[in-house]
Amino acid sequence: LTDEELVTMSVRELNQHLRGLSKEEIIQLKQRRRTLKNRGY
């Protein structure tokens, strides 16, 4: 997933992508998404 996709994707879509990932990967992705959102994309 690109940063842009992460930010513009709805939470529902995101959760579908996260299905099948490990807990660590999910946590990393969610942190990255929060960081991007805070940057004001």
Rank of each mutant, 00 (worst) to 15 (best):
Q16I: 12
L1V: 07
Q28M: 12
L29E: 02
E4H: 15
L1A: 01
N38W: 06
R32N: 01
S22N: 07
R32L: 04
S10T: 13
R32K: 05
E13G: 02
R32A: 02
K37H: 08
E4L: 12
I26K: 14
H17W: 11
L36S: 03
M9F: 01
R12I: 09
N38K: 13
E25A: 12
E5I: 07
K23W: 09
K30N: 05
V7H: 05
R12K: 13
L18K: 01
R39V: 11
E4P: 03
H17L: 13
T2L: 04
G20A: 06
K23I: 11
Y41E: 12
K37T: 05
K37F: 08
S10M: 03
L21E: 01
R39S: 14
L36I: 06
L14F: 15
S10G: 07
T35G: 09
L21M: 12
V11R: 14
R19A: 09
K37A: 05
I26T: 07
E25H: 07
E24D: 11
N38H: 11
L18V: 07
Y41V: 14
Q31G: 06
Y41I: 14
M9V: 03
R19P: 03
T8R: 15
Q16W: 09
V7N: 04
K23H: 10
E13K: 07
E5V: 07
V11N: 13
S10F: 00
L36E: 03
L21R: 10
M9W: 00
R19K: 13
S10Y: 00
L14Y: 05
R12P: 07
N38R: 07
K23N: 08
I26L: 04
R32F: 01
R19G: 07
E5L: 07
L6V: 02
E25V: 12
I27M: 12
Q28W: 10
R39M: 15
L29I: 15
G20Y: 08
E25L: 13
Q28R: 14
H17E: 02
K23V: 11
L36V: 05
L18I: 10
K30V: 15
L6N: 00
E24Y: 09
V7F: 09
E5M: 12
T35L: 14
Q31W: 06
L29K: 02
Q16H: 08
L6W: 00
V7A: 09
V11G: 06
Q16Y: 10
L18W: 05
L18Q: 02
E13V: 06
R33Y: 15
L36Y: 02
E24N: 09
H17P: 00
Q31H: 09
L14K: 00
R12S: 12
L6Q: 00
L6H: 00
S22L: 05
L18G: 02
T2D: 03
N38V: 06
E5W: 05
D3H: 01
E5D: 10
N15T: 09
I27D: 12
M9E: 02
E13S: 04
